[in-house]
Write a protein that binds this DNA or RNA. Structure first.
Length: 412
RNA sequence: GCGAUCGUAGCUCAGUUGGUUAGAGCGCCGGUUUGUGGUACCGGAGGUCGGGGAUUCGAGCUCCCUCGGUCGCCCCA
């Protein structure tokens, strides 16, 4: 590599080989499951006016205040590369009149951008799959959404993660709880970690899942959301949990689970690897594999009508790490050209194989005597070797697809 | 933004208390052997040891700066 070859941007990745196969497997599985649940596909732009995210996520959140990739376009307007899907989907819902389709089940996937220090399972350009139900305020929507997430993880072969579930209540419940937490933690402020003292000002709910030892003694006796839930909010949560039970989705109550973004109300959830599991090891300190919740106020914040909605997103890279490396399937046929005069013959044969839907390639370069060895190393179902004197040899008869010789009877 | 750690061929790594032309395996290219084929052997290409500066007779190895990777904190998928 020359010294003046440009390097990739920090936090971006070039994905290839087994990793790329894992990535594709996640996306393909998501597409399949999403159709099973009748979620409709949507595509949004990767950039929006900055205000779309600033107004949706909350001006004071870290994402908005320091993690957005923002820039001015030539007209001087501030634009931002999407740091998440939900805000853009809400904007699209309003500007395209998708209200007419409500309740609307949507699914999408693609790249997102966040200006952060990269580490295991976290990148500046990362990729998510995403599912939302917009315009449905009933708990059954939460159940539907979570049932889909649960089945997706199962179909990906990820068994050692558990749904951690909480409710943040409605707006009033959440505010009352928040105030009680501030009172409680303020009383012991001096004994809290520096980080949590800061959280007390900015985001007191997050003290609850602090990793600092100094905060732990105070967590167990902290005010519980359940004591502040309105009757309606409690009934809503009951309906969600009983619905999950009916759908066969295993879950675990996580009273300390809160979500970072301001727009969440009622249901909040994360699928987290079980303690000590292989998945927990694979993810390092990035524990959440899929997360989301209900965001009934968001669309109103963007100037639309009051519209309830729930959604989740999951990092494709993180899921791919749990799925493990996936090998590329070998070719059905490899044609080895051991006589350069027969290259055209091989080209014609390949065309017919591919038209018949049989994956195939040829090896026709490099040392003549090593071409066959190269083919063997790629372990195809069948090797057809075109030799001098118009001869040929076949190997792999046992594992050959019968269609190979239906397509190319002359080599049988 | 903060902390830790690493940075030698395309890849994975060796390189002794600093000492002459920097090595291996794999991969790649060519050849020999086996004569019908995933073997073995030989040879070749490929590195200004991340970059810059300092110490020294002499630095891949010591020191400083810088740039990158990785992991962790904050935050988050």
């Amino acid at each position: 590599m020359s010294k003046n070859t440009p390097k990739a941007i920090r936090g971006t990745q070039d994905i290839f080989g087994p990793d790329a196969e894992g990535f594709a497997f996640v996306v393909e599985t998501f597409e399949r499951v999403r159709k099973l649940y009748r979620f409709r596909r949507a595509e949004m732009p990767v950039f929006e006016k900055t205000e779309v995210f600033a107004r949706s996520l909350g001006e004071t959140t870290d994402v908005v205040s320091k993690e957005m990739y923002s820039f001015d376009d030539r007209g001087g307007e501030s634009l931002t590369l999407r740091p998440e899907f939900t805000a853009g989907i809400a904007r699209a819902f309003l500007t395209n009149g998708w209200q007419q389709h409500a309740p609307l089940k949507l699914a999408t996937h693609g790249p997102l951008f966040r200006y952060e220090r990269p580490q295991k399972g976290r990148y500046r350009q990362f990729h998510q799959i995403d599912a939302e139900i917009i315009g449905a305020g009933e708990p059954q929507a939460d159940v539907e959404l979570l049932a889909m997430a649960d089945q997706l993880l199962k179909e990906l072969g990820i068994e050692d993660v558990t749904l951690h579930l909480n409710t943040l209540g409605d707006g009033e419940s959440r505010e009352a709880w928040r105030a009680a937490l501030v009172d409680y933690f303020s009383a012991v402020k001096g004994d809290l970690s520096e980080d949590s003292q800061e959280r007390l000002e900015k985001n007191p709910l997050r003290i609850l899942d602090s990793k600092d030892r100094r905060d732990r003694p105070f967590l167990a006796d902290a005010p519980k959301i359940d004591d502040f839930l309105s009757d309606e909010a409690a009934a809503f949560f009951d309906a969600v949990t009983s619905g999950l039970d009916a759908a066969g989705v295993k879950w675990k109550r996580a009273e300390a689970l809160v979500r970072g973004l301001d727009y969440y109300r009622h249901t909040a959830f994360e699928f987290i690897p079980d303690e000590g599991s292989a998945s927990a090891d694979a993810l390092g300190s990035q524990s959440t594999v899929l997360g989301g919740g209900r965001y009934d106020g968001l669309i109103e914040n963007l100037g639309g009508p009051a519209t309830p909605a729930v959604g989740w997103a999951a990092g494709i890279e993180r899921l791919a790490m749990l799925v493990g490396e996936r090998v590329e399937p070998p070719a059905v046929v490899i044609i080895v050209v051991e006589d350069d005069g027969r290259t055209s013959e091989a080209t014609a044969a390949l065309r017919r194989l591919r038209e018949a839907g049989l994956s195939s390639e040829m090896i026709a370069s490099g040392s003549l005597r090593k071409r066959y060895d190269k083919a063997v190393k790629r372990s195809p179902g069948t090797i057809i070797s075109l030799q001098t004197e118009m001869g040929h040899s076949i190997s792999g008869d046992d594992s050959s697809d019968p269609r190979v010789f239906e397509t190319l009877p002359e080599y049988k």
